[in-house]
Amino acid sequence: MASQHPIEIILARQWASTMSHPIWITDHAGNLLFYNVAAEAVLGVRFDEAGEMPAEQLSELFETTGLDGSPMPSEELPLLRALTNWTPAHGPLRIRGHDRIWRDIEVTAIPLIGEGERRLGALAMFWELEG
C-alpha cells in the first residue's frame, strides 16, 4: 500500500493550517512534514518552497544556537526532546532561517501519541521573543 500519514498527523496539519501562530509538524523520526503560513515568516521560506524534508537536512536550512549564540546540541532542541522522551518540552533558542536572519524564539513541543500508544510524531508551536 502507498504511504499515507496517520489521520492524527493529517488532522494536525489541517488544524495548524488554520492557526495564526507558527506551528511545525514532524513524523516520529523528526522528518519535517509541514509548517504553517505563520511559521514561514519566522523561518524565512515558504513551505511550498521548502517542502517535506528528512531530519538530517534540516540543519542545512535552519541553523540553531542558544540565545547567547553558543552552540546548542541538537538533542537539547525542544522538538527532539519531545521525540526522544515522548513528553512535552519547552525552551528558548536562536534560529537562522532561509533568509539568513537570526531570530530569538521560544518553542513548546508536544509529542503526538495515537491510540494504541503509537508514537506518530510531534508538533512544535513557537513564537518570536520581543526585544
Binding site: A2, S3, Q4, H5, R13
Partner: peptide, 9 residues
Amino acid sequence: PKWTSGFAL
C-alpha cells in the same frame, strides 16, 4: 494521497 484519510486502505 499521503494527506488523505483512508487512502492506504
